[in-house]
Design a protein around this nucleic acid. Sequence first.
RNA 1: GGGCGCGUAGCUCAGCGGUAGAGCACUACGUUGACAUCGUAGUGGCCACAGGUUCGAUCCCUGUCGCGCCCA
Length: 1033
Amino acid sequence: MPMEKTFNAAEAETRLYEAWESAGAFKAGANASREDTFCIMIPPPNVTGSLHMGHAFNNTLQDILVRWHRMRGFDTLWQPGQDHAGIATQMVVERELAKDKSNQTRREMGREAFLAKVWEWKGKSGDTIINQLKRLGASCDWSRNAFTMSGAPGAPAGEEGNFHDAVIKVFVDLYNKGYIYRGKRLVNWDPHFETAISDLEVEQVEVQGHMWHFKYPLADGQTYEYVEKDEDGNVTFRETRDYISIATTRPETMLGDGAVAVHPSDERYAPIVGKLCEIPVGPKEHRRLIPIITDEYPDPSFGSGAVKITGAHDFNDYGVAKRGNIPCYRLMDTKAQMRADGAAYAEAAAIAMSVAKGERQLSEAEVDAINLVPDDLRGLDRYEARRRVIDQITAEGLAVTILQKSIDKETGAEHLERVPFVEQNKMMQPHGDRSKVVIEPMLTDQWFVDTAKIVEPALEAVRKGMAAHEAGTFDEKAGYTRILPERDAKTYFHWLENIEPWCISRQLWWGHQIPVWYGPTKDFVSSMAWRDGVSDKGTWPLQTFCAATAEEACKIAHAYYWNEEIAAGDTRAIGDILVAEGAEPSIAGFAGELPEIQIARDPDVLDTWFSSGLWPIGTLGWPEDTEELKKYFPTDVLVTGFDIIFFWVARMMMMQLAVVDQVPFHTVYVHALVRDEKGKKMSKSLGNVLDPLDLIAEYGADAVRFTLTAMAAMGRDLKLSKDRIAGYRNFTTKLWNATRFAEMNGALRRDVGTADLPQASHTVNRWIIGETARARLAVDEALAAYRFNDAANTLYAFVWGKVCDWYVEFAKPLMDGEQAAETRATMAWVLDQCYVLMHPFMPFITEELWGQTGERAKMLVHADWPSYGAELIDTDADREMNWVIGLIEEIRSARMQMHVPAGLKLPIVMTAMDDKGRAAWANNEPMITRLARLDGMTESAAPKGAITVAVEGGSFAIPLEGVIDIAEEKARLSKTLEKLEKDLNGLRGRLSNPKFVESAPEEIVDETREKLGLGEDEAAKLKAALSRLAEVN
RNA sequence: GGGCGCGUAGCUCAGCGGUAGAGCACUACGUUGACAUCGUAGUGGCCACAGGUUCGAUCCCUGUCGCGCCCA
């Protein structure tokens, strides 16, 4: 059955992918014929995700590397999997639940039931992205598909696996090594998800901000001389003030102020440093006083130069508060509403007052328990509270005001009015990258990785890797890592050298629950305070027990309580202690009975990136010592986008080195972003998103893949347009039709299966074999250097520019001559090589052509990658064919410019020719005649009224008496000559410069001389032709 | 403010010490051994600007001007 006219991608792609899968073509080690391994870990897409252009790009590049290695016989594994994506997934499932009002909310159904819902959702929708990757042609070993939550408690059947074990083990190990700690720190709090998030999950967005100016009256009506001076020390302003002016963008946080700070060098405020001032908000009778302190942080030139310090709600203030031992009063709850808990304001304010006066010291927990929100503001949203605070202060006359002209709408009369001074400023405001709500800095207890302690090996490994890469001594097995392109290594260094502690606890349910249990400290147990009801459970001092399981935790707790004499001196001494796991810590059963202490598990889960940071070892079965781990770890290449260098790459480096003391991969290839054709980031809100699945449906997966690859110049964003994809779809059609030509001419070797390299005698065949070898060398070299675009462009130029444009055309007249058999064999071989070399880039159409053109022993996906090279390049054939091509092009060009009708065949006259040229002509006459539309060659002197075609070794004339316009031919020749002379002058100039001849490398000088010689020959011919034309007239 | 890049044909971009390339777009013409998702030919560039290093600079160095991105 003859081939269809075009490739039906939509029909073939699914069929071919299924064929590969059912043959187990992608299984780890499939087609392996050598010991070397090659392993790539897929950057796990979110389980909620669907394929976007970035995935398509990222996975195309990985697939090329994987298919290339597999064909070369490496023991290859492309490890796929998905990330449980804590916040994103919890958000999606909650949103799903909310669609039906009869559903319980997350909190109503409780943790266990909600998690069951998430697993259920994962079971239903988790395969979406996998199926999409298959449409792209990704040759992952799906039988090993991994999931970062596999094996977690509550995981349903089919979600076994031990990723959870790995995560828990690492947490416990790092905890025991002292790399993980818990502390009350100011963290980025997402009020929508009610969880802490890491710095990286915060987006700074520029918004129009407002800055209010308020007066903080000095205590006891004190006054001071406020003096402003210019640069030369001349007084420019002076007044007596009984207040200090404060500028703030967040008036609602004034309620939690612990101090006012000024710069130590700021002379304006020197007289009042150390004094107390009053926060101008809250009930008049309970106004709080706070000290005026100095700190390096305030910028004297910004605002009034004085800054209110609210340690619990601002990162800069927090630093000042820590340095100055200023209490940090938390004002908001987890929803960023003003706190409504604790004692009434009067009581809380009284305690705070005594702290400010230095009469009292509070523990951290005691400070946190104090609610300084006035009773009338409690429970309000932070923005509502802000409005009211501003109103109250303004009403009291403590806002800094300015005079503003206003016009009465009724009367049109102008009058001046005092209005609060509010500056309009653009400011950067932090937002949650998922929730898009404004992040609230919040003082909470969180878990942190002490990254400073594990960062050094991660830096060192890349420093060494980059040094080796630059020196050209890079060794994949040397235990270091390089990052390509180099620029991204700089980014990596910059971030790691300035790394901050990593907040890893999240107040979510979907994730790995932190393996830590809390119980009261033994001091506290023996203190009896717990019995006296003095403090509620929230402020009990706690002891931490970190263990992989509850049983283990109980054991550790037991040892803790038991080994020490916890009730020394107490008559109710303890016989034994029963430690049990409970919902919250408790103590019971004293007084002679066996005491019982309940320890309670930390309800928080780990940051998703903590688990994905273990992806390389976790997917290979660690902590078990599996065969795969031994074989494939460390893995080879990580292909990823620059946007997750910090989130993921850096953390994988740190964690793998901390846990197994090895780098996870030797090379990180960082690719850029896919943008729309105008260079805009694709985003749903802009509506400029190109869906890779739509494009695959329209143009075929091969065209989409090839487009992305051809545009993948290292480190540069790529602007994707449909025109470009259509162009590469046309390329697939071109290859298809070249095959059809071979089929129609009996040039397929269906009989022998795979075509062997033929013994070719004809120049044309020897030439194309050499070109094929060149292409193979160039593709391998490009891929080895991760220059995907070079590889793609090489193939495009070879297949279209050499095979289709020239070889197929040359072959036509050879199909029934002496060399017919040889030419058919060569064509079969060349096309096979095209399929093989193109397969990593365009797997579908090449596999289809491979299947349709022969009885093959193996599918193309497992075909052997060729190893031939320079030995197939025949330089004589090369020279000859380039001469032929040059001649044909010259004649075509001349004809076209002389407006010779395309269909008209012309005779040609050889006016002069050397031996080589004669041989070249003789060997290729049928091709030249056909392609240049000639009709017979004679030898003689140049006739009058002919066009001249100069080639290396001689020249031709095409008599066009009466056909050509002499003037036009003159113009054509003159133009060519002019251009040539310009080049020649450059060459002459260089050669006449003695310094050039002295200093330039010999080969460059020789090359220049040769060029000049050839050029001068050609110029002479052109001049001769011109003078002949002159004779005609 | 700190860091990292980028300014090359109308557009999108390769190239990065030996005198400039591709694709698309554009113009003209279409010749039966596959292909109009095609073929042939052609137009088009002081390689942002100014200095420096060099026999030689689009390429290396310095500065200027534009434009991105990341982090504050």
